[in-house]
Amino acid sequence: MGEWTQDDLEALYVRLEKPIYNVVYRRLWNSEEAHDVVQEAFLKLWSMRRRIVPETVEPLAYRIALNVARSRLRRRRVLRFLPIEAAAPESLRDPHDLERHAMAAEDRARLREAIDTLPADARDVLLLSVFGKLTYAAIARALAIPEGTVGSRRHRALRLLREKLEEDRIERRTGSRPLAP
């Protein structure tokens, strides 16, 4: 195993910044915080550089980023009991929300709710496969799950997302929720 250098770290950052940011953003829904999580993940990766195996560093980077995002979410749940100003400073309220320009606010809210209500295990698989373009083996390694379950979780996430968004679409058109099957 060769020594992992800062050049290696930077090359990996250039390659993975965008996909990891997109995955983390769909967990935190906050541009600045997602960006900070990506940075923190790479700092953690750097502190583990002596143990890094180049062949598995990519799933490891996703795994660390997801762990950091989860811990931020836990912290946020604690802070929810504080006044909003204390819990979310002005600087953390989506200053660079590019999605704002791509979708109407209502659609974004519905999409966010649909993604948030997905089971966590299925959502992570979907996000990693969509943004990370990872193989099933790499996703399994990133999430520490058996490779055989990746496909079924991805399929389940897509089905639930589709159902939820379709339900919302009908609700908006008719003004009432569709009857449960």
Binding site: V14, H35, V38, E99, L111, I115
Partner: peptide, 15 residues
Amino acid sequence: WLPELEPPPGGLTAL
């Protein structure tokens, strides 16, 4: 549903 977003600029410099 999941459009690819650009992260804020200056990430590598900040890192």
